[in-house]
Write a protein that binds this DNA or RNA. Structure first.
Lengths: 344, 344
DNA sequence: TTGAAAGCGCTAACAT
DNA sequence: ATGTTAGCGCTTTCAA
């Protein structure tokens, strides 16, 4: 193994000089700097991460806490994880992956063992058990998600209320007066994961404002569940012409069910979704949708965390504005909102 | 920060004694061991990871290299990542997540900077550029996947050839004589990712053995692409009654297309897939399928890696035997393999 | 602009 | 069964 001392010897300087060339924390004459650079390349030197961590109390590692609870849409988590990792690298950080199991204990491990300089926390519940530990932690953290009480926390998230409202406004603007929401699975609501409720409240507010009827059905992302839910919706409210879907897994099943029931999209029913752009764009009917900006959230979380590690000011809680892209799944409300247009 | 020295002082022993209690590398009288345990708890001591890494040249960290290339089915990767992380924890290891971008360079970083004790490599190409570096690396690695030349490497993977054969045997056993394969997207084949080709060769061999006709169509996982492919298949080979799908993303689109074309599953067409059990079980028609044992692969990879880190013998390359679960998507071949049974 | 030297917190010989 | 001590490879005062 090549050490700093080896490099110093090879370049004919002291160890500290090599260290300073690496960190740039003091000025070095161009000549020696070049000589040292050369030695480093020639010897293939790499600083030992552990030694560095010990001496500097900085690990150059960010922890990513990613519980994988039921009802979560995996691809979104993955996108965030990837964005976090690549962004972290551009800032010179590596990423330590922590999964659920350990819960709050993981926070203590990271702190106590000095495993990382800061942490990014996913899938935050309204009253997340990790919050107290994060609040009193020495090291900074950024949450992706929004707990009930954000005091003393740094959070990044999509403005789900605005996103829900955006969907309703779009449909209302097209003349739809009977709307229904296919929500996340019951488990997600039960768990107190804020975003589902925030979306719903945004949807409700907008529906009230536009005077549209509204039905809400939590639903599992299976064909059978979606089929049952959709059937019930049209039975109870034959005048329903607009659907808002907030369950990525339900998107394809929904389109299949509608097709099967003979309801044309968007001629008979307009559909808007809240899902990653990729899902919306590649659906069997390209969907008018508010994007879940997974990559942005991951990137922004890292940038904030890095800024705080550098001692720059924390930016506090910030919500991303929703962006709705119109595609092929929405159109004007049918002239006669007659019942039973579709066959069953 | 609480250090080993603090604990030693508090317990009235020397630092080394505390260290040995922690590592169990020499016998300690029950009395002092208990006293030290108590001090550790009372003070809330946690060993400093960096210091430990420096002194012992062991990081207790495993690196997980996960390029995320196009055409990959994300949930499988995620399942593997989660299995790797939780299994690693049960053995006292944490996981460092490395994504694509860096390629072979990442291998050198991990080595050179002593970031991890060993690595697990995903999405291995037949002639992966990382292989030479892995072969000459000091630290052990386990690949999930099978490159062209496995010499000097430790690999875990599903036996895709056997898996493909298993699907064909099942269909042949049900009397199907005209089969078609919906394969991975062309990009996957082009990239030289072995598993797709291994599956295909297994399918071909079994088809030859059973004397069944066979058509192969690579396909993107979009509704449009699947629709086009299926339509062509039935035009070219009206006698096709059995489908093998090896593209998780194509599963739902396929079922939707068949439904739309009026082909009943399994009365008109039998479908077998090669996909995670969860996908198969929750599809709109529960699928007879060979499972992609993502969790097992992740777990086994870690167990092997840990065994090697402990100096136990490497187990060499090992393929997992396929397991086919019969569900609702396959049935006896239609009596009269007549053309044009479905409407269009 | 550069060196010398004192740790960072832990492990592992080497003693006793 | 326990203590003493010399590093592990790096950062960072303090000196020059």
């Amino acid at each position: 193994m090549v050490t700093l001392a080896d490099v110093a010897r090879h370049a004919g300087v002291s160890a500290s000089t090599v260290s300073y060339v690496l960190s740039g924390k003091r000025s070095i004459s161009a000549a020696t700097r070049e000589r040292i650079r050369q030695s480093i390349d020639e010897l293939g030197y790499r600083p030992h991460a552990g030694a560095r961590a010990l001496a500097s109390s900085q690990t150059s590692i960010l922890a990513l806490m990613m519980p994988l609870r039921t009802g979560l849409y995996v691809p979104v988590m993955m996108e965030i994880a990837m964005a976090v990792t690549t962004t972290a690298r551009t800032h010179g950080y590596d990423v330590l992956l922590l999964t659920g199991e350990e819960g709050p204990e993981a926070v203590r491990r990271v702190e106590g063992s000095a495993l990382a300089d800061g942490m990014i926390v996913l899938d935050v519940e309204l009253d997340d058990p990790r919050l107290p530990f994060l609040r009193e932690a020495e090291r900074p953290s950024v949450l992706i998600g929004l707990p009930a009480d954000t005091a003393g926390l740094d959070c990044v998230d999509l403005d789900f209320a605005a996103a829900g409202a955006r969907c309703v406004e779009h449909l209302a603007g097209l003349g739809h007066r009977g709307l229904a929401v296919l929500g996340e699975p019951p488990a997600v609501y039960a768990r107190g994961t804020g975003y589902a409720e925030r979306t719903l409240s945004g949807i409700r507010a907008a529906a009230a404002e536009h005077g549209t009827a509204l039905l809400h059905r939590p639903v599992e992302g299976t064909y059978a569940a979606v089929s049952a839910a959709v059937t019930r919706i049209f039975e109870e409210r034959p005048g329903t012409t607009g659907l808002v879907v907030q369950n990525e897994a339900a998107v394809e099943p929904l389109l299949a069910v509608l097709r099967h029931q003979g309801r044309a999209v968007p001629e008979d029913v307009s559909v808007t979704a809240l899902c990653p752009d990729q899902v919306a764009a590649h659906a069997s009917v390209p969907l008018t949708a508010v994007a879940v900006p997974a990559q942005d959230m991951g990137r922004i979380a890292v940038e904030r965390l890095v800024a705080r590690l550098r001692g720059e000011d924390s930016h506090g809680t910030g919500l991303l504005a929703p962006r709705l892209t119109v595609r092929a799944s929405t159109g004007p409300a049918p002239d006669q909102p007659e019942a039973g247009r579709g066959r069953r």
